[in-house]
Write a protein that binds this DNA or RNA. Structure first.
Lengths: 224, 224
DNA sequence: CCACAAACTGTCATGTGATGACATATGTCG
DNA sequence: CGACATATGTCATCACATGACAGTTTGTGG
């Protein structure tokens, strides 16, 4: 968690990964993720040990840690892809949209894509992540920390879109944080059975709607 | 982190703790916190081991874990007190204040109190927490998770103040999340030397100001 | 094709956080 | 004081994580 990851990213160079070595590495990595999520879904995050994951792919646990910095890290690959997609989609929105509108549409769009499995991975993983995250405190913590790190990138992207320098203007920071917040509020509402929302994208859309209405207003007792 | 805490709270019953046993327990607890923060300040959070903390108070490390559920937990006692104070202060605001205004004043007030040591603990701890949290990923994660848990209480308090039921209305959730977000944005701005803020309370006030102005507006190139 | 360098892997050892089990010491109360 | 509850220490154990070293595979160049 705390240490720097072993940069085992999906690889970026030329489309045909030059050597067989690279291919094998990628394959091992994917197998690990697969096995991990299978076990997570089956026994939960905390109850799954690194050794089990490693055994499932027939490598030593030591080697596992050469692919992922921590157990959380495997699960977080998911959020990593998600936020990568999100950032890209945001950058592609028409530049004349007001910022929150652009963000709302982006977030809701990406979330929906996740739910529908249009993002290159099994939508079951999406659901798996959601439940695991609320079950395991450790994963929750890791997930929040990951979001926090992404937050910084997000601030840059938002700043660029707003034409404001995040180094000197607070506004991009506040916008970025607020977006995360809306998303988080949506997650909680989704977990609560009292709410009518059945999908995260739906709940997120509602949260953004609240945000756009403005927050300060409803003074306690009189219809505003 | 993930497990439930050993409910070793400051104790709540009659002002004079009945027996000597309770007193000793309380004292041990305080000593542990003291020793922990001394070591944290000296060597950092990650580099301090539970054994060292325990040794400093001359108890076994096993006993340490009977007082605190985890190493993070010791550091988080701080945030615990802080959010307790915050929640109380919020509930005490005049009920006719618009919600965000009430929150802004509460948060800024409590933060200032922390900075000035008016909250029953050494303000150095405040600073210590700030730097530790940004240095240690583990503590950062723990801190975020703690905030997440507090978030739920906060949502209730805010809901009550707004006269809205958090079980069926998204708005209290979004407000609570947004407040946390503003606070977090302020923390980051404070860490960045480019910003002119020298205290967290100052940065937080600025963040809330941005929030009150509204977020959606600045379309990229033309004055809104 | 062979030799060499680089990189991947396994094994072993170690440190740390966290928890269960059990015996012991200490405070509490009749 | 004696019975009881609770706190603590010791010991054992597990899981995550990392460093060190050796063996193996792969890529490269003669």
């Amino acid at each position: 968690m705390t240490a720097t990851a072993p940069e085992a990213h999906p690889a970026e160079p030329g489309s045909p990964p030059p050597g067989r070595r690279e291919r094998k590495k990628l394959q091992t990595r994917e197998s690990l993720i697969d096995a991990a999520f299978r076990l997570f879904a089956e026994k939960g995050f905390d109850a799954t040990t690194v050794e089990e994951i490693a055994d499932a792919v027939d490598i030593s646990s030591r080697t596992f840690f050469r692919y992922f910095a921590s157990k959380e890290d495997v699960a977080l690959t998911f959020q990593e892809e998600q936020s990568r997609a999100l950032m890209a989609a945001l950058a592609a929105r028409p530049p004349d949209e007001p910022i929150m509108t652009a963000i709302r549409r982006t977030v809701v769009g990406i979330t929906r894509a996740c739910e529908n499995g249009e993002l290159g991975f099994d939508p079951q993983r999406f659901e798996c992540m959601l439940s695991m995250t609320s079950d395991s405190g450790a994963l929750m913590a890791g997930s929040l920390e990951h979001a926090q790190r992404k937050h910084r990138e997000m601030t840059q992207v938002i700043g660029a879109r707003m034409g404001l320098d995040p180094a000197t203007d607070l506004r991009p920071h506040v916008v970025a944080a607020t977006v995360m917040a809306a998303f988080r509020a949506a997650s909680e509402a989704l977990a609560d059975p009292n709410f009518p929302y059945t999908t995260l994208s739906e709940a997120a859309d509602a949260a953004f709607a609240v945000l756009e209405e403005g927050l300060n207003l409803p003074a306690p007792q009189n219809g505003r």
